[in-house]
Computed example of a mutant assay.
Amino acid sequence: MNTTTVPGSRLPTTIPEYLDQLRAALTGADKAMIQDAVYDAEEYLRSEMAENPGRSEAEVIASVAGSYGAPDEVADIYRETEVTVARALRPPVPPKRTSALGRFFGVVADPRAYGALFYMLLSLITGIFYSVWALMGFSTSTGLLTVIIGIPLLLLFLMSIRLLSLAEGRVVEVLLGVRMPRRPLYTQRDKPWMTRLKELFTDGRTWTALMYMVLMLPLGILYFCVAIALLSTSLGLIASPLALFVGQGYVFTFGNWNLVTEAPWLLPLFSVIGFILLFATLHLARAVGLFHGWLAKHLLVRTPVV
């Protein structure tokens, strides 16, 4: 296991300094994990400060260093925990196939392909909701900036975008297998309110998350239509031989042919084509899952500043 520590660093005397050292100790780790670690550390230190109102930050940090740990120790614990949790949650790895046919048909044993396919079907609903919320919320709040209610409404809207991005990250992690944040973004709570509100506007991830919500409408429509078209076509072709048992009134056409009456011997061939198309659909779903996981990672997770 590769760990990154900060050798020789002194024990921090303030919570922001502690969090800065923790981020530095986690350099190179998954940025979603860094966001979770920083948030957890801040929550713990703030709760300790609340329980010890008569003590300074330096005294509280020194007292909890033995139980919670110094920043580099906490970083090592998070790295080890991340590996343990990832192994526990990892779906069964399908056996490696050496032949091209084995790799093609082996996708049926890949759980990520089914998760990505379900995400493609679900994305129409989430895409419509996210985009309508983003477009209506942004247009309404900015349109009311000329009156006093516009500014707090815009702030609430931007905070809701962060909340939605956190919820979407959980969906992406469960269905697509991409590590996403499980905690909100860290905000240094001892900063003045105006400074924190200014950071909400200047934080690039606020706007990339908003862009993600808007993009989900065309992407959701595309994902859903492609998934439905391929699934219905492949399943229809697979079931085509059943047309022989339905009766002469059933029509299964290919070009100008009604295969049921003119070429029934071709129906088993179309059924085989349907099976192949179904496996190709799973491959495409897995590729879409990889692409969308990459997109969500880059637009919804803030790169830590060390």
Rank of each mutant, 00 (worst) to 15 (best):
E80G: 14
V60R: 07
V306Q: 14
I15L: 01
R162C: 00
I128Q: 08
R162K: 10
E80Q: 15
E51Q: 14
I61M: 02
F129D: 07
I273D: 04
F275D: 02
Y223R: 02
T14N: 03
A229P: 01
L267D: 03
P184Q: 02
L124D: 00
L145G: 11
D30R: 09
E82Y: 13
G28F: 03
D190L: 09
S123A: 13
F224M: 07
D40F: 06
D110W: 07
R90G: 13
T98P: 05
A209R: 03
P95G: 13
L153R: 01
V83A: 15
D30C: 12
P111Q: 06
Y250H: 05
T261P: 01
G169Y: 09
A75G: 08
L277E: 10
T81I: 09
G54V: 07
D203A: 07
L158Y: 02
P241I: 00
M33P: 07
L166Y: 06
L215G: 13
R196E: 03
G236Y: 03
V272C: 00
L277K: 05
M213G: 08
S240N: 06
L290T: 11
T206M: 03
L284M: 14
Y186E: 01
E51K: 15
R170Y: 10
T126F: 08
P192K: 05
V6C: 15
R162A: 13
A229W: 06
V93I: 12
E57P: 12
Y119E: 07
R182Y: 03
L215E: 01
V93N: 09
V60M: 04
Y212C: 05
F254I: 06
P71C: 02
Y39E: 08
T3E: 14
A227Q: 04
D30T: 11
S160W: 03
A229R: 03
L153I: 10
D20R: 15
E59G: 06
T146E: 12
D20V: 11
L267P: 13
I151G: 12
Q21C: 09
T303D: 13
R46H: 10
Y223K: 02
F291Q: 10
F279R: 07
E173S: 14
R90V: 04
Y114W: 11
L269R: 04
R103A: 14
S160N: 00
L89E: 14
V301D: 05
L22Q: 00
L155Q: 14
S234E: 05
T202Q: 01
L154Q: 10
L101N: 08
F291H: 09
S131G: 05
L164S: 12
